[in-house]
Design a protein around this nucleic acid. Sequence first.
DNA 1: GACTCCTTAATTAACATTCATTAATATGAA
DNA 2: TTCATATTAATGAATGTTAATTAAGGAGTC
Lengths: 207, 207
Amino acid sequence: MKKPSLTQPVDTKTIILNEAVRLFAKHGYSDVSMRDIAEAVGIRAPALYNHFTDKQNLYLAAVSQAFAEKNQAFSELFSKGGTPAQQLEKFVYYLCESVGNDPDFRRLLQREVLDGDEARLRVLAKNVFEEQFLTITRLAKQLAPTCDAHMLTISIAGLVLHHFEFGPLRRFFPGSRAEHEDPKYIAKHVVNLLFNGLDGRNHKKRK
Amino acid sequence: MKKPSLTQPVDTKTIILNEAVRLFAKHGYSDVSMRDIAEAVGIRAPALYNHFTDKQNLYLAAVSQAFAEKNQAFSELFSKGGTPAQQLEKFVYYLCESVGNDPDFRRLLQREVLDGDEARLRVLAKNVFEEQFLTITRLAKQLAPTCDAHMLTISIAGLVLHHFEFGPLRRFFPGSRAEHEDPKYIAKHVVNLLFNGLDGRNHKKRK
DNA sequence: GACTCCTTAATTAACATTCATTAATATGAA
DNA sequence: TTCATATTAATGAATGTTAATTAAGGAGTC
């Protein structure tokens, strides 16, 4: 069916998607026009309609693509075994690096959570995040049996995500330093907080 | 200067601001037209220009108003003394109630953090949140002297905020229950996590 | 190879709509 | 009257999208 022809028919669609992801993540759906995307690609706006039926269709394809690849590296995380504590620590580091190195993904997620309709959010939860959510929830149950594991999973993700999401505002708070945006530094802080709570002095063994 | 006249001249401006806050919080700057706001108020769009110079001006005024009142109840929180741990617990409960009962405020904050330019974010940090930030940082230093207090403050705020921000997506995760959106339940969870870390069994005395 | 034919993907031009904003004007109370 | 506040009408720009057209490559037939 899909015959990759000659010049670059498949390539154009990929380029469009990449530019769309970048622009939608940066400015949001309503602040990116079809002309903006076309210009970034190097074509005219009507040419976009050879690849996508309309703007919404292009947006959904862009978001899907941005979220699609996020399930591969994750699975490998837990293949190597380790104690639950070690696995959680690995996950926090993975999440920090992942979110820190892909601001487009993070911003698209923020925008979807803010403005996505129920249908889109349901798909997002089921198809993109459910596996990861269940894995962390299982871990949470082992590590903190008396805690609401559902809530704890949200807490862990939120703890990481918010350090990145709040960056633009946090920068103007007293005591801000460059390392506060460093994924490794954030991960270390979060891991410490999770395992020891506020009282970071009484370290418990967890390795 | 401001003479509250008769019919409702000052009132109109207030109504405009309230409707603008509501609409901007719900849909975002670009997805709310001057006509939308005017319709919500019950007037025609050009009448808005008797009270605000342009759309940006109206938006800034709306955001300022939504953020303005957030510094009053806060100060009283710490006037009654208590141990640092008690004060922090009070703050978490206050923040949960505050954010939970004012979704417009929360959504506007989310939008500003996502799309606000540097100047606006600087003003927001300095004029709206700095006092609260410094207070919590001071508390953090007392409660966790070995921890990066700046980071810890962000963690505390993020922990609370994310439970509300992620609500629309979290609802579609397995195990979701109604109480997961209850401010008091969230506060209890956050307090427990902060003071005890993952291991919620070894409760430390803190009252 | 040379001739059609179909498909794909690009272009320019144009359209209808919506938007923020302005101008001119009316209304009504002090 | 005067001033503040509202209205209607209009303007110019931007938006998503469609129409008509063109160029180019692949496939089948001679």
